[in-house]
Design a binder for these strands. Structure first.
Lengths: 253, 253
DNA sequence: CGCTACCTTGACGGATGTCAAGGTGGGTGG
DNA sequence: CCACCCACCTTGACATCCGTCAAGGTAGCG
């Protein structure tokens, strides 16, 4: 396993105070993997997995009975993703860009972590965060219009991978319009129409297929159905400065 | 705190092998509460809470900006519910029937549980289960039609509180049509129309406002968009015999 | 027995899915 | 470096499902 990836894992998931022994044992059960864009991250089918994403971007998908796919979440470096054993649920993880991952069998991971309750608590805290994100997603899908979903999605992305750019925030979206639609419960056509509409109102601008610039964050937040907290920009700055992002287990957008 | 409620908590959440001391300390920080139907379960605002539902039924709701409410989950006895600190998220827990609950400050609970990693793992396991349920809910809300949502909801309820009744399953739903709609992202009218339609097709029958009987579970499962696993009945029998239900942290339907 | 909250039914309109027909970006190979 | 090609995106016309508004009906409780 490349030292660089595991070091990232150690920094982000294991607190600073973890014994070298625990770290050692975890590195022994972790399966490193390098995956090319559009390929599946191969996971052992012998139980639930905890996957650490060291580099790249992924989507977590469910295959529906009709062979279509629904995107549960997008993930970015530093995320810890819980993937249940692929029995019938048919959850799988696909690379949106070239990826480096470390996959741990969940049971072994947790057994080792029992020796170091702080690690267990870190995992629990991230899982609770994932649950909150998933709840938010459920609200979004249940109640919001297409435009609200799209703007909410863009703002969530801004929080996660946006970079300040003058008065705007610049996004380099690794996922296709289809992926966005599959994540928000919309068709690709509706996604496209909403992008066009936001572009016509100068709330966003786009360059090529993946670059999106968000202007007027406050107006976008209003469109997303938020309640006037125009601190997205501030949050991003704070986060990029400290180098800490909330991270998640499997419910990031 | 009534012995009966805490005993239930001990049986369901604490494994049999927990030290008397841990159990004792948990009972000291747990706030017992009896709540009447339609009232709010009052929680300390000083941090996240873990609420054990010993008796009754509850809904976990979010107040939307427009003062409407969205139901995140319904809960039943034995569930452990994670309720984040009510900052702006405005999540609250309402009793659908007379309830008995024990509320623990999450941080204190987890600190005590660190002495007994098996408890921490139980909580983590339940949280992961809640995450799975929430993911399922997200899929349901994102992709399914009104009829699929309703039938899926009824089958989920059958798994949780259904009792076998000849060839059917009988449900005594503690929540109103409005609550069901708020949970599935539908209006009360649409819920009502779908009930009527299912009734006309003899897939369900109703008595009064809260009794629902499900016939033809396999057909209902098809309507729900499931993939032909007609084992719902079997699962319920097995569960009611063993007295064990999966339980959840805050994402039950 | 009557009141009230809750449920049911109907008519209508609008947001979004579906179907269809181009247009465009970006990577590949010459 | 350019041209080509394919996947991806955009736009339009139309259909449909569900939300909205409105008007009763009914269960369950006092």
């Amino acid at each position: 396993m490349p030292k660089e990836s595991f070091d990232r894992f150690r920094r982000q998931i294991l607190a600073r105070c973890v014994s070298a022994q625990v770290s050692e044992r975890l590195s022994e059960i972790g399966q490193f993997q390098q995956t090319r864009r559009a390929e599946r991250i191969v996971l052992s089918a012998t139980g639930d997995q905890l996957v650490f994403l060291a580099e790249g971007a992924t989507k977590l998908i469910v295959r529906m009975p009709d062979a279509s796919e629904h995107v549960l979440a997008f993930h970015f470096p530093g995320d810890m993703i819980y993937v249940p054993q692929p029995e019938q649920g048919a959850i799988s993880m696909l690379a949106l860009a070239d990826c480096r991952t470390i996959a741990f069998p969940a049971n072994s991971f947790l057994e080792i972590a029992e020796a170091e309750p702080s690690v267990l608590r870190t995992i629990l805290a991230r899982t609770l965060l994932a649950l909150q994100r998933c709840r938010n997603k459920a609200i979004r899908l249940g109640r919001k219009s297409a435009q609200e979903r799209i703007t909410d999605f863009l703002l969530a992305m801004a929080d996660r991978i946006g970079v300040p750019d003058g008065n705007s925030i610049r996004l380099n979206l690794p996922m296709s319009r289809r992926d966005i639609g599959n994540s928000l419960g919309l068709t690709i056509e509706t996604v496209s129409r909403q992008f066009t509409e936001l572009r016509n109102e100068h709330l966003i601008s786009t360059a090529g297929r993946s670059i999106v610039r968000l202007h007027h964050l406050d107006e976008l937040a209003t469109r997303a159905g938020h309640v006037s907290r125009s601190n997205t920009q501030a949050k991003i700055c704070a986060e990029s400065k400290s180098g800490l992002r909330p991270g998640a287990i499997a419910a990031a957008d």
